[in-house]
Amino acid sequence: MEIDPFIFRLSIFILSIFVGYYVVWSVTPSLHTPLMSVTNAISSVIIVGAIIAALAGSSNNIFEPSNLFGFLAIILAAVNIFGGFLVTQRMLQMYKKKKK
């Protein structure tokens, strides 16, 4: 019997939870705020879905309701991607060592 592809995705999901668990415990507490802003930025990879939604269907009629929701989601995710990565970068620039 063939294995349903869903099971493969579920395996990736569960393994990623474990990876996330160990990686996040190793994050130093002083960087917890940048951790939140960068997880925010990467979770906006949901823009992938938004792009598919926006470009779905024929190219003559690109403003059907389903496309509109896609375009809106693109704006929201783009705010997050640019805002999230840039504000993280801004914060990380500030963490400096003692000048010897």
Binding site: P5, F6, R9, I12, F13, I14, S16, I17, V19, G20, Y21, V23, V24, W25, H32, L35, M36, T39, N40, I42, S43, V45, I46, V48, G49, I52
Partner: peptide, 26 residues
């Protein structure tokens, strides 16, 4: 992650799991 499963998209599934567990640990 939920959307990642719908779209069958590995990047979204991995990211969702990472962010989900990160927030839970915090």
């Amino acid at each position: 992650a939920g959307i990642g499963f719908t779209l069958e998209n590995t990047a979204l599934i991995i990211t969702g799991a990472l962010v989900g567990s990160s927030g839970a640990i915090l």
